[in-house]
């Protein structure tokens, strides 16, 4: 992330200013002075054992090395609606360094009951652009690239270096496309889907065709009748991000499983294939 010369320069600044903890204000100032990115400065600090304060409550869970790994990671979030809004929010706050956000839609009033990125102020706004704005408000270390396009129409370059994909789509056809695309790239997919009080999450490992298995020729699910209430997306999204971060930290077991939850009855089922 840094050249030897840049490291020396930062080491000099950290020594001179006796930096023991890194605040947002200090990071921003050093970035202005040196022209280096916030992310690079945070990464340097972590290498020196200094935890940027914004991650102070995370490192107990992730470890210092884990936090470094997250800052170096590049993931894609496909769909920036109910699931995607919360997934993006948590990834940005976690400090996952590069996020490619994909959604061809604009916000409308039916999104307001559940979509974190939707507000009265940005109705009609492109979801891909709103995602970039939201991320910039929260964590300047994270680079979000927004694509206002359907996943089927993404330019090839959008996939460069992506090591994990979050399936936050609402169309079964698009999900099956994503499964095939990710498989061709050898990249796992963190799948999530919701409808009413219910939801499911799981990891699609390259080759296991989990989505083909559960959706087969189906066009839609129970969400057509039940809709999507305010709380279900946040639950599914948090399970997804937990699965995703475990993967990025190298702590995932490769198993063909789907987790199904029912918030009406507070039930949780692990389904093995």
């Amino acid at each position: 992330m840094l050249t030897a010369e840049e490291k020396n320069r930062l080491a000099e600044i950290f020594r001179r200013e006796e930096i023991r903890e890194l605040t947002v204000a200090t990071t921003q100032r050093i970035s202005r002075e040196t022209g280096l990115s916030i992310r690079a400065i945070e990464y340097f600090a972590l290498e020196k054992g200094i935890v940027p304060r914004r991650y102070a409550r995370s490192v107990g869970t992730f470890t210092l090395d884990g936090q470094k790994k997250l800052l170096q990671s590049r993931v894609m979030v496909v769909g920036l609606g109910g699931l995607g809004g919360y997934v993006l929010e948590e990834l940005v706050r976690a400090g996952v360094g590069e996020i490619v956000g994909v959604d061809g839609d604009v916000f409308d009033e039916t999104n307001l009951n559940r979509q974190l990125l939707a507000g009265e102020r940005n109705l009609g706004g492109r979801k891909g652009e709103e995602a970039v704005k939201r991320a910039a408000e929260i964590n300047g270390a994270v680079k979000v690239t927004g694509f206002s396009a359907r996943v089927e129409h993404l330019p090839a370059a959008a996939w460069d270096g992506v090591e994990l994909v979050f399936d936050c789509l609402d169309s079964i056809q698009a999900r099956l496309f994503l499964e095939e695309k990710a498989e061709s790239l050898g990249v796992p997919v963190i799948h999530g889907a919701i409808g009413g009080w219910y939801g499911q999450v799981g990891i699609v490992w390259p080759g296991n065709r989990l989505l083909t298995k559960i959706y087969r020729e189906k066009k839609s699910g129970i969400e057509q009748a039940l809709g999507n209430p305010p709380f279900t997306p946040a639950v599914a999204a948090s399970y997804m991000v937990a699965l995703g971060i475990k993967y990025l930290l190298g702590q995932s077991e490769r198993e063909n499983a789907l987790y199904f939850f029912d918030l009406e009855n507070m039930e949780f089922e692990k389904i093995c294939f």
Partner: peptide, 29 residues
Amino acid sequence: LLVNGLDADPERVLQDGDYISLFPPVGGG
């Protein structure tokens, strides 16, 4: 469609003590 917690087919012949689990499709986001 699961029999005894494992993926199964509608043609599967059931045995004493089996349990069947059925889930509908969920596809929203």
